[in-house]
Design a protein around this nucleic acid. Sequence first.
DNA 1: TTGAAAGCGCTAACAC
DNA 2: GTGTTAGCGCTTTCAA
Lengths: 325, 325
Amino acid sequence: MHPGTASRALNPNARGEVSRQTVRRVERAAHLLGYLPNTVARGLRTSRSLVVALVVPDITNPLFPYIVRGAEQVLVEAGYTLVLTDTNNDPGRERSQVAAMRAGGVDGFIVATARWQDPVLDELAAAAVPTVLVNRRNQSCSFPYFGTDDRHGIDLCVDHLKQLGHRSILHLAGPADTSTGRERASAFRQAMRARRLPTARAVVNCSSFTEQAGAAAVNTVLAQGFSFTAIVAGNDLLAIGALEALTARGIECPRDVSITGYNDVDFMRRLTPAFTTVRVPLNKMGALAARTLLGWLGGTEPELGAKVLLPVEFMHRGTTARAAR
Amino acid sequence: MHPGTASRALNPNARGEVSRQTVRRVERAAHLLGYLPNTVARGLRTSRSLVVALVVPDITNPLFPYIVRGAEQVLVEAGYTLVLTDTNNDPGRERSQVAAMRAGGVDGFIVATARWQDPVLDELAAAAVPTVLVNRRNQSCSFPYFGTDDRHGIDLCVDHLKQLGHRSILHLAGPADTSTGRERASAFRQAMRARRLPTARAVVNCSSFTEQAGAAAVNTVLAQGFSFTAIVAGNDLLAIGALEALTARGIECPRDVSITGYNDVDFMRRLTPAFTTVRVPLNKMGALAARTLLGWLGGTEPELGAKVLLPVEFMHRGTTARAAR
DNA sequence: TTGAAAGCGCTAACAC
DNA sequence: GTGTTAGCGCTTTCAA
């Protein structure tokens, strides 16, 4: 039996060029020998590895497992393998890991670590590596982006608080080198202005999307004497940090201050009080990104600057209440 | 310049066989051209890919991200790449994904999905693929295993509850096809007997390590009229499910029933009441497993049935209290 | 110290 | 429909 023929028999695309009988014979033999086509050799020959890399900043941030899961589901169904790489929020590691993945011949990237200015993405774009962005994007948005409708989400929060009688609302903004930090802050300002609510000193920047940063920001604002009756946090972790900082000072939520989160990470509904937050379809975001990348790898090049914003859902729970008179 | 020489100049091991001057020349050129050695081709030639696969049952289970992180840290430092594969708790997918990884030429496996009887592991053992087990093991323990000292952890729970005056203690055991389910149940029985506490009907099996299963088990026991004043849950999710089921029936924790969890997943301390549970060094478990696998790949074959049990720490928080009189 | 050549396992183009 | 051949990019023996 001749290797070329065997190869054709095993390859779904070329199977047509070979007699049914031979196909059967080859399949039988392959099964018997426990033969697994060596995808490395195949990749070398075809320069397609059927591997996609997913770059996350920190897999222990409860946001990301759902994105990973959504993406892997789609990828595996299509016969692809997912390579996860966790950059530990370190641009240096991001650069080197991406380089390693490239050298390893991955077919494309799903990037969840985008910073506002991101040289790694610029390189990827320059090299025309199929890449999609998820959760965050870079300024130039060099690639298709799958995020959520932050403008709407934040607007829902502000609206809800206004309905409850709040006027002095503080926004805990995520880092300015992330699109989510910037865009939610901008959405907040716009939502406040649209309702003739005061925006002066109403936005404070947090150094990262962590509890610590959220707590620190609240402490700073309090120390400066700025008073507020509600907080719109840039994400759930910032919201939790804010709650802790307030509680530590005897300020109670929602009695004294209302708080909204963002993302509706799994355990938010289980906290006491259960958190009012904005639910984001993380699974779907990952799946959609993967599907688009797969399409790209299959030849249908996407519109490069395309932004897909998934709809969000406001979850009214226990951390928001009518403003004290 | 001749490719063989260039290869030697770039390869740390063979660099000695080449003149310093040539090395410099090659390095300069490589840098200039942005040359990245193609690891696929290298892998084909050397049959080492510098890739390790990590198999998890469900990355959204908050247990696993920490293990992933611990492992990846170590792996990346050693120049390896981590391939994550999530089997969605499905043995079929586990089998096919592992086969895919094998065909993809990974150097070894870290498996966190082991079932008590696990044909996939048997195959891996038969093929002598370097593999380490983490979190769970199989019955034959065909590979080095990194888990926690469950016997001690469960003993601490029972001891604590006994100190508080509890005698009727229920154990919510994880699935019988996992080592963690079986061993914690066995540890529970032993701990109870050692303290002359009753074990009849004190262990109930849950179909999976999920909230739903925990709640269902508690409901069943309650329906059967078995009464208890405390629960030792097989893991945190079961504990949370149990708490929900009890609360739904107006049984309060810890006033009426005390509950202990297991693993001390990140948000347990944030719940109200904060959960009494057993803290497990997940990060270290992943790191240790990775290091051992790396050693194996480097030539130091580990003792095959070796079990490394990491120390646990009992976290006394708000879900346990003195037994009602 | 460097050059030459073979070959890792597979596939695609071409010949029969 | 099947056989033949060349070569993906690298490493490594062997010879110079």
